[in-house]
């Protein structure tokens, strides 16, 4: 048995040595916001944060995350009634289409903005090109990141 701390909550899970974190999060912890897309770290749909760093949970053994802080899409909002600035920007830009990749997109975007609160288009391209969107909503994702970035500046100066 392995103990994992996800979104601040402890989960005791049954993970073999090679079992990816993705399947533990989805099937054993019931957090289905993190998606399976490719299984080989090609599409980014499974992106979560481990100690604040974005990782592809489909190739990350669950046991390697023991003792660390794991954050999923369900855990980024400050509280139940408030969305994360990035989620809010995503709604304002009406970003998703099918939405399947969006948890991963948002997790990558949050990680980017934590490192770099005002990224350029090129920096966004560099940080986000590991996340595939088959609906092709790249321009809206980019706009939403700029919008979130602007909101961050405003909230920081308040």
């Amino acid at each position: 048995m392995t103990s994992l701390k996800i979104n601040g909550k402890e989960y005791v899970v049954d993970a073999s040595a090679d079992m990816p974190l993705l399947w533990v999060i989805r099937e054993q912890c019931g957090l289905t916001g993190t998606k399976f897309g490719c299984g080989i770290a090609q599409c980014g749909a499974c992106t979560v944060h481990i100690d604040g760093q974005p990782v592809r949970s489909c190739i990350t053994p669950a046991i390697s995350a023991e003792g660390k802080n794991i954050t999923t899409i369900e855990g980024i909002a400050p509280d139940k009634n408030t969305l994360h600035i990035v989620q809010q920007a995503w709604i304002e830009e009406q970003t998703p289409q099918c939405g399947y990749c969006q948890s991963g997109q948002i997790m990558s975007a949050v990680a980017l903005l934590n490192e770099n609160p005002s990224p350029t288009d090129e920096e966004i391209d560099a940080a986000m090109s590991g996340n595939i969107c088959r609906c092709g909503m790249y321009s809206r994702i980019k706009s939403a990141i700029h919008r979130a970035s602007a909101s961050l500046q405003t909230s920081n100066t308040l």
Binding site: R26, T32, T34, F36, W90, I91, P96, G99, Y100, Q102
Partner: peptide, 19 residues
């Protein structure tokens, strides 16, 4: 008009067949 399906798609609550 804002789309009905979008809010749940940014919180991870949207349910696909996979979920």
């Amino acid at each position: 008009q804002p789309r009905f399906d979008i809010p749940a798609k940014v919180t991870g609550e949207a349910k696909f067949g996979m979920d």
